[in-house]
Simulated assay, not measured.
Amino acid sequence: MEGESDLRRWDELIPDALGLIFRNLSLQEILTVIPRVCKSWGKAVAGPYCWQEIDIEEWSNRCQPDHLDRMLQMLITRSSGSLRKLCVSSLHSGVMFSFIAENAGSLQTLRLTRSEMSDSIAEQIAGRLSAITFLDLSYCSKIGARALEAIGKHCKLLVGLCRNMHPLDTADKSSQDDEANAIVTTMPKLKRLEMAYNVISTESVLKILSSCSKLEFLDLRGCWNVKIDDKFMKGNFPNLKVLGPLVVDFYEINDWEDCSDYSDGSEYLAWEILAGEMGDFDDDEIYDDGMYDGRLEELELRFYDGIDEDAGIYGWPPSP
């Protein structure tokens, strides 16, 4: 047809453009379908174009540890040193923590939720995570103040830290004030800090507020020992959004419009966050200073090697 020659074929798109498109597909589709379409598509997913950001957090929650290690090693190898974001959960192997650190030259965002990282492992790898700006160590029950101190000393660009815990993991702890003190002494540039269900005192929170002068969001849900007056917070930290310590069930709130009028003399709750501002403080928020660029972090990049044999290993049927 006339004018048809002006249209560019899909298989002629540059690998970078194909990589952006493939990011919208599932991990299974990229593994079993895309490489079989044509040589150019297979080449695109085999190169680093798609893998500057790797998010396998959901998948890793339901796979076997040995499968997870193999997957992660293949993904990071494919990134060829360009990895900027990594999200993985339930990581057990100390070897894999070291492997991540060895390939973290460009890594800015790292989520290692529910991992088996220890204080000693954190101390060993922290020096190679110097480019990190956002770190999530939520539900990592085997680390403590030593790990946070090592991370804070080496990760000078850190502006976001998630250290949320499950209530059952902290039920037998008398105090986690040492972790709060590690944050106070080593992480002055924090803008976002999440410490839900940590056993910390009011004094430790006040030290954090004093030391981390750039703090914009603080999650204290379930930190029952913390008592902060509403008027004190608004008078001294008017630009700081605080969530908690009070935990309110969504279904117990009858009228969202009245939430902003809620007040408690001993516990401060930023209702405007619950009422709709949480999107403004997403983990992948864009900060003005450029150290924490969230625009790329909204994209999920998923891929691993082994088109035929590994598909069966990971429990996926071969592509049609």
Rank of each mutant, 00 (worst) to 15 (best):
E116G: 13
N181V: 13
I151A: 10
L110N: 06
A150W: 01
D172C: 13
L110M: 05
T186R: 03
I121Q: 10
D172R: 12
S118G: 07
I121V: 11
I121P: 00
L168G: 12
K189W: 10
S120E: 15
G152Q: 01
A150P: 03
I132N: 01
T186I: 03
T186Q: 02
A196N: 09
S174R: 04
E179G: 12
L193M: 01
G127T: 11
K189L: 14
Q124S: 14
T170V: 15
Q124D: 14
S175L: 12
M187L: 07
E123D: 12
L148V: 14
S174L: 10
A145N: 07
L110P: 02
L190T: 14
V205T: 06
Q108N: 15
K173N: 07
R163S: 15
K191I: 10
K142N: 11
E194H: 03
K142P: 00
V184Y: 02
D178K: 02
E123R: 08
P188R: 05
G152P: 04
K142C: 11
E149N: 11
E203D: 08
Q176D: 08
N198I: 11
A131E: 11
M117K: 03
L110I: 10
Q124V: 11
T109H: 15
P188F: 03
K142Q: 12
T109M: 15
I151T: 02
E123S: 12
L137P: 00
G160C: 07
K173C: 13
E194Y: 04
D136R: 01
S141V: 09
R114T: 13
Q124T: 15
A171G: 10
A180H: 04
I143S: 00
Y197T: 08
A126Q: 01
E203Q: 05
H154S: 14
L168I: 14
V159P: 02
D177A: 14
T113V: 14
G144S: 09
T170S: 08
S175F: 12
M195C: 09
P188V: 06
N181I: 14
I151D: 07
I200N: 01
K156V: 15
L137C: 04
D119S: 10
M117Y: 11
T185P: 00
T133F: 06
L193G: 04
D136C: 08
L135R: 00
N164A: 06
F134L: 05
G144C: 09
S138H: 03
T133P: 01
L157T: 06
D172V: 15
I125W: 05
R111G: 15
R128T: 12
D119W: 05
S138E: 03
D136H: 00
L107K: 03
T185K: 09
S204W: 02
D169M: 12
S201L: 06
C140G: 07
R163N: 13
A171V: 14
I121H: 04
E179W: 05
Y197R: 01
R111D: 13
K173D: 14
L158Y: 03
N198F: 05
L193F: 02
Q108A: 13
A182H: 02
S118C: 10
D177F: 06
I200R: 01
A147N: 04
D169A: 13
A180S: 04
L129P: 00
L190H: 06
T133M: 01
M195N: 01
G160W: 04
S201V: 07
D136P: 00
I125T: 09
E123M: 14
L107W: 08
S201K: 00
N198R: 09
C162M: 12
A126M: 00
A147Y: 04
R192M: 15
L112I: 12
L158G: 08
I151K: 01
S141K: 05
M165L: 09
